[in-house]
């Protein structure tokens, strides 16, 4: 922004955007998985309708991936709103 250029999504490379979304959500997912599954045993959560093929390790894995997905979706939202806000502000400055 120092150079007066409007902030656009392309100021951040696609790879950096991916990292910015996937990496913090990965860390969040680890914590969420740890807290969630230490409080709830998957065998208690799905005692009857669980597929016996899916072991506890499987539930943990699926849980972790779901947490990662949810956190990543939230990250996409944050990045989207932050960038579109910056773009608006950048355009506002240009109009002055």
């Amino acid at each position: 922004m120092q150079d007066g250029l409007p902030m656009t999504t392309s100021r951040i490379s696609r790879l950096q955007k991916c990292i910015a979304i996937l990496w913090p959500s990965f860390l969040t997912a680890i914590v969420a998985t740890g807290v969630f599954f230490s409080a709830f045993d998957p065998d208690d959560l799905f005692p009857f309708d669980a597929d016996p093929e899916i072991s506890r390790l499987g539930f943990y894995t699926i849980g972790f991936l779901l947490f990662w997905l949810i956190a990543a979706v939230s990250g996409i939202g944050t990045l989207y709103f932050a960038i579109t806000n910056c773009m608006r502000q950048g355009q506002g400055k240009q109009d002055d």
Partner: peptide, 19 residues
């Protein structure tokens, strides 16, 4: 961040070029 700060670069440009 290094970027050209010429007047011309204020014009909207195609995304790829900016990148």
């Amino acid at each position: 961040m290094t970027s050209p700060s010429t007047k011309g670069s204020r014009e909207p440009q195609p995304d790829e070029q900016l990148e």
